[in-house]
């Protein structure tokens, strides 16, 4: 157990667009205790996704220190960073990002291909994860045969199947109807409460954010100080 699971120190992230420097995150420092369900809110362009990508190890800060699950990410090579992601991060995308040519079970199995599990062990893990999200009977369905809500549940099963340290979700309910969104948020709540998973969710939706234990607002690259 890592506590805090995320520590960000003096993070600066600058993008160059058409020759212009755009500061997305400015001198951002904060930490996330293990077992927290955190919602990060903010308007478009506030830097929410960039912040999530830094914590996921799929982007690097211009300066500052990112420590996640006890690892100083900026010190890792590309390959080590990929292996670290496989071990510690479960990522849920807004558009589900399932591989269309693979079945639900095969999509969920993908992260396990990076482990040393045997084929039968992988199958057991996949079944468990899909049952947990209520899709035990949809294992052989292709993404096109599933509803949006079901696709996102497969995405969630894929995020948890390798038992990562932390689940990161980028607008996980952004493309869903109210009912499906509720299902997903309920699952996040259960994963946090029953399995103690640390969850960081970026969202626009105040109703989704309310389901988190903690809400932080990001405005123009600066994290609002909680009252």
């Amino acid at each position: 157990m890592y506590d805090p699971v995320v520590t960000l120190q003096r993070i600066l992230k600058v993008y160059f667009r058409a020759g212009t420097e755009v500061s997305v995150l400015r001198d951002l420092s904060f930490s996330i205790p293990a077992g927290t369900f955190l919602a990060i809110m903010g308007p478009s362009g506030s830097g929410k996704s960039t912040l999530l990508n830094l914590m996921a190890g799929i982007d690097r800060p211009t300066s500052g220190v990112v420590v996640v699950a006890g690892t100083r990410l900026h010190e890792l090579s590309e390959g080590d960073m990929a292996r670290w992601r496989a071990r510690h991060i479960g990522y849920v995308f807004q558009s589900y990002n399932l591989i269309p040519v693979l079945t639900a079970a095969e999509n969920v199995e993908l992260p396990l291909l990076l482990t040393h599990l045997s084929r039968s062990e992988r199958t057991d893990h996949v079944k468990t994860a899909l049952r947990l999200v209520g899709l035990g009977d949809r294992m052989d369905h292709y993404p096109r045969q599933l509803s949006g809500g079901q696709e996102q549940r497969v995405g969630l099963a894929r995020a948890i199947v390798s038992d990562p340290t932390m689940i990161l979700a980028d607008e996980p309910t952004g493309n869903l109807d109210r009912e499906s969104a509720e299902d997903i948020l309920t699952l996040f709540g259960r994963l946090n409460r029953e399995l103690g998973k640390t969850i960081v969710m970026v969202t626009h939706d105040p109703r989704a954010a309310e389901r988190a234990q903690l809400i932080r607002h990001l405005e123009k690259g600066v994290l609002e100080t909680p009252p």
Binding site: A56, I58, E78, G79, A82, R83, W84, R85, A86, R87, I89, Y91, F93, S95, N97, I99, L110, P111, L114, R158
Partner: peptide, 15 residues
């Protein structure tokens, strides 16, 4: 391209 990004996010290396 998005699929490649997804696989890389899951931990698959460039190789």
């Amino acid at each position: 391209t998005t699929e490649i990004g997804t696989l890389r996010t899951l931990g698959f290396t460039r190789l």
